[in-house]
Amino acid sequence: MNYSLHFEKNLSASLSRQDARLENIYSRVLDYCVRAGFISKESMRASNPRFVWLQETIRKNIMSLSLLQQIIIDCAEPALSLDEVNNDVDEKAKLIIREIAKKILDSSPDFSADCL
């Protein structure tokens, strides 16, 4: 038996679960925000107003995407490969990043005054 293939199938099935996928999307969005300098690890630890706003925005976007996904595909889809899971998470994280950027632009100048 090819243990590597068996391991990848099990890992892929685990990561394909809805709760694991949503947590991966959340983490990926936070990672993008840290790398872009939008939020720091220290701000996250301190739960400053910008981080609280970011958490809420990410959660709302994840809920929205989850609802939309329900009408687009059947949730009983087979387990995806690791690459497919990673691509799905990355695609959704990028959609959320776009929404965060739009919210920031739409709220100017109030955003910088309230969340810095």
Results as ranks from 00 to 15, higher is better:
Ala113Gln: 13
Glu84Cys: 01
Asp31Val: 07
Lys41Asn: 11
Gln69Leu: 10
Glu84Phe: 01
Glu23Ser: 13
Pro78Met: 01
Glu91Cys: 05
Val52Ala: 10
Leu11His: 03
Arg35Asn: 15
Gln18Thr: 08
Ala46Leu: 13
Lys94Asn: 11
Ser112Phe: 09
Phe51Asp: 06
Glu84Ala: 07
Arg59Leu: 13
Ala46Cys: 11
Ile104Tyr: 03
Asn24Pro: 00
Ser14Asp: 12
Met44Ile: 15
Arg50Leu: 02
Leu105Lys: 12
Arg59Trp: 08
Arg50Val: 02
Ser4Cys: 09
Ile25Pro: 02
Leu30Cys: 09
Cys75Met: 13
Phe51Lys: 08
Ile39Arg: 06
Ile97Arg: 14
Ser12Ala: 06
Val29Pro: 04
Leu11Thr: 11
Asp110Lys: 04
Ile97Val: 13
Ala76Val: 03
Ser112His: 09
Tyr3Glu: 14
Lys92Gly: 01
Tyr3Thr: 12
Ser16Trp: 05
Leu65Asn: 14
Cys115Thr: 12
Ser108Tyr: 11
Ser108Thr: 08
Gln55Met: 09
Ser40Glu: 06
Pro109Phe: 00
Glu8Tyr: 07
Arg35Ala: 08
Phe7Ala: 13
Arg50Gln: 05
Ser43Gly: 15
Leu67Cys: 10
Ile71Cys: 12
Leu22Tyr: 09
Val85Asn: 10
Val89Asp: 00
Asn24Thr: 06
Ser64Thr: 08
Ile100Thr: 03
Ile96His: 00
Gly37Glu: 02
Asp88Leu: 09
Val89Pro: 00
Ser64Arg: 14
Asn61Ile: 02
Ser16Thr: 14
Ala13Tyr: 07
Lys94Ala: 10
Leu82Val: 05
Ala46Lys: 15
Met1Val: 07
Leu67Ser: 11
Asp83Tyr: 06
Phe111Asn: 02
Gln70Leu: 14
Leu116Ile: 03
Asp110Ile: 04
Ser12Leu: 00
Tyr3Ala: 14
Arg45Gln: 15
Leu82Met: 09
Val34Arg: 15
Arg98Lys: 10
Ser27Pro: 00
Ile39Met: 04
Phe7His: 12
Ser14Pro: 00
Lys60His: 11
Ile62Trp: 02
Glu77Lys: 14
Ser47Thr: 14
Leu5Gln: 15
Tyr3Met: 09
Asn87Met: 04
Cys33Ser: 15
Arg21Ser: 08
Ser14Thr: 12
Ile25Trp: 04
Leu105Gln: 07
Ala20Ile: 05
Asp114Ile: 04
Lys94Cys: 05
Glu56Pro: 00
Ser47Tyr: 11
Ser43Arg: 13
His6Val: 09
Tyr32Lys: 10
Arg28Asn: 12
Arg45His: 10
Ser40Arg: 08
Ser112Trp: 13
Gly37Val: 01
Ile25Cys: 04
Asp90Cys: 03
Ala79Gly: 10
